[in-house]
Simulated scan of single mutants.
Amino acid sequence: MDQLNIMRAEVAREHGITLYAQYNEQRAAHFLKLDLSTVRRNRRAGRVPYVQYGNGGVRFLGVMLCDYILFGADAVRLWGGETPDEGQAADAAE
């Protein structure tokens, strides 16, 4: 786990991300170098970790953004989720 934290810290430093700050979708899109609509689509599809915030709002912790930069859609596994492909495979097996 120490290696993961080292990698997160390095990515955060390179991208100007504060690991435990909360960011809205627009700032997340900026850090991820993606269009805002792409971030929203990926979040709704379960491809990017996020925190539910208030009345339907969402926030991204800096550490979540770093995980997405490092691991792409697999980052959701670090946060207790499953990648969309895993969810579809489980549904097909039932």
Rank of each mutant, 00 (worst) to 15 (best):
A21E: 12
T83D: 03
I69F: 10
P84M: 00
L19C: 01
D74I: 02
A12Y: 04
V48C: 08
E82A: 15
S37Q: 11
M1C: 10
Y68S: 04
Y53R: 08
V39D: 09
Y23Q: 04
Q88W: 07
G16D: 06
Q88A: 14
H15F: 15
Y68L: 03
G81M: 02
V76A: 01
A28Y: 06
N55D: 13
N24A: 10
R44V: 09
A90N: 09
N24M: 06
N24L: 06
V51G: 02
D2P: 04
E14R: 15
A93K: 11
P84R: 00
Q22D: 11
A12S: 12
G87P: 02
Q22L: 09
L19T: 00
N5M: 14
N5R: 14
Q88E: 15
V58N: 06
A45T: 04
D35Q: 13
N42C: 10
A90P: 05
Y20S: 02
G56C: 03
Q88T: 10
L70H: 05
A73I: 06
R40T: 09
C66R: 00
E82I: 11
T18L: 08
Y23I: 06
S37M: 07
G54H: 07
P49Y: 02
L32H: 10
H30G: 04
L36M: 07
H30F: 10
T38M: 08
P84Q: 01
G57A: 12
R77M: 10
L61Q: 01
Q3D: 13
Q26E: 13
A92P: 06
D67I: 00
L32F: 08
L70I: 04
D91Y: 05
P84N: 00
D85S: 12
G72Y: 06
G87A: 05
M64V: 01
A29M: 11
A9N: 12
G81D: 03
G46F: 02
C66Q: 01
E94T: 06
S37D: 11
G54M: 05
R59G: 03
R13N: 10
L32Q: 07
V48N: 01
N55P: 03
E10Q: 15
V58I: 11
W79R: 01
G56F: 03
R59W: 08
G54C: 05
G16L: 07
M1R: 13
T83S: 05
E10I: 14
L4T: 09
E14V: 08
D67Q: 02
Q52L: 15
R47C: 04
R41K: 14
R13M: 10
R41L: 10
G46C: 02
Q52S: 14
P84K: 00
V58A: 12
L4V: 12
A21C: 05
A92V: 08
V39Y: 09
M1H: 12
M1A: 14
G80A: 07
F60Y: 15
W79T: 01
F60V: 02
P84Y: 00
R43Q: 09
